[in-house]
Nucleic acid binder design. Sequence first.
RNA 1: GCGGGUGUAGCUCAGUGGUAGAGCGUCACGUUGCCAACGUGAAUGUCGUCGGUUCAAGUCCGAUCACCCGCUCCA
Length: 557
Amino acid sequence: MTTPAPTPAPKSMDDIMALCKRRGFVYQASEIYGGINGFWDYGPLGTLLKKNLRDAWWNDVVMFPCWGRKGPTDERVSIVPVDTCIIQNPRVWVASGHAAGFADPMRKCPGCGHFVRADHLWDILATQSEWLSSLLQEFTPITGEIDTPRLIKWARGRGKRVAPHLALVKQPEVVLSFLATRVNGQPDAPPDLQEIVRYIATAQLHATGLQDPCPRCGAPLGKPSAFKLMFESWAGVVQDDDHRVYLRPETAQGIFVQFKNVVDTTRVRAPFGIAQTGKSFRNEVTPRNFTFRSREFEQMEIEFFCHESEAMAWYAFWRDWRMEWWKSLGLAGDNLILREHEKDELAHYSKATSDIEYCFPFTSPGFGELEGVAYRGNFDLTQHQQHSGVKLDYFDTDRGELLPNGSRKGERYIPHVIEPSAGLDRGVLALLCEAYTKDDSRPSPEFMKFHPRVAPIKAAVFPLVNKDGMPEVADRLHADLSRAFGRQGLIETDAKQSIGKRYARMDEAGCPFCFTIDGETLKDQTVTLRDRDTGAQQRVGIDKVVGLVGDALSTSG
RNA sequence: GCGGGUGUAGCUCAGUGGUAGAGCGUCACGUUGCCAACGUGAAUGUCGUCGGUUCAAGUCCGAUCACCCGCUCCA
């Protein structure tokens, strides 16, 4: 009989949040004032962790793109950075589509959950509602006379399928009797179509008054309420609509808006990418799940511009490499998946999209998005070209027919775009969840298994006891390590309290290596290297320590 | 937005209308010779906030804020 491998206990989000607070990774924003919904601050260790993740992205995307790997066109990947403003000309958000759909009063459907623009409800009902156009065929043309048996038949048959939540479908007799009362009660003022539709959407006329139906499922819509995705402010002294500005809901638009400047001023040649990290803001309806859905968050976005004929190849390239990148930071195994979107999931302009998703404790057994890799066609540049009136095409001198002189004629086109868009705060949260480990058999049951590259504390040096020359040796080693790696992360040293307590503290902070100076060190120049994940100890020469830490920090690709 | 739950020390939590508590952690001193060791001591609280009932509220009532869970949503 074989003993099954012990399945690790599911990680508790409560435990992770407690550790995050206790060790200074994440604090509630404005906590002493009772907090503020949807906002979180990072403490010292969290700030370092986030910086390390952002730096890893920056170094691997901007400074040394894709670890030097060649793209599908067999050229090295070319990326340049920009840093654009959170506040842009408001017309940017008109062009991008962020302003239009979500600045207006919306009505929510309790049946199918969809939002409908209040001011377009009757247009949508008239032109896009499957159930209403089906139902209208049951009315006698022109006179609009109501054929009760025919309507009941519709309600019990087709209506059940196309408008399951419509009052007429749920309670046909009641609804039609109200309608008949109305028609017969005021024969001189027959109801118009709108009024009839409201009647058939109403189950309890006296209790609720006439209702407006959802165009999709027929359920009575809720009250209109402003549903503004974007935070607003005013630029300048006058706080009126003419001076209204918005905090960006994504960093991508700043890239598109500066596309022409980058092309004109930097010698980039397609295919190439523009990268940017920065804060974005969304007035989420329901901030939830710790920092996962926050109203203020940081993104790491690439817009990669290429010819349409190469776009799908680049899409596959970026999708696969981004997945590898997350894996290289320790999010390996079953907790990370690449999920290709189904056709009906795609935005109308997107030809393909994948999500890189992590199995968070609060989504488990489901997954939550870390990064979306989207092939957006040339939708964004086209939109900005139309709205700004400025040409945003690209003249590609490597394309077009071969001329007698050996050069190409060139081709003018609006580039297609692959957008790998990652959530930095979500990445940090995934690193925290992945790293959190509980093992009650250890002296330090809770510890953080950070990859050395993202670990806020890279190494710690302890004198076993605070005397006999050990502190002096520890100070020297600490100084050496600090000189070598102090710019990448913290190097700790601590001579107080028992060695076990010092190890345990480092475990909770996720420090991968502890070096302990003991009596033997003074004789043979070796120190104890204590491994965070296993607790195993080995002796290494004190002169090997810097190289050893360096090796652990330099791994990538 | 709806429903359920929670809120007391840095963390985890006890607390019966009548003096604000424990464990862990933190800090100091001593001891200590590789795993939250031991001893002694110390600091830490407007009991989420506001209001009400009461002689008296952490405790009962109301409101509000925040967090967690489930639905919903995420252009």
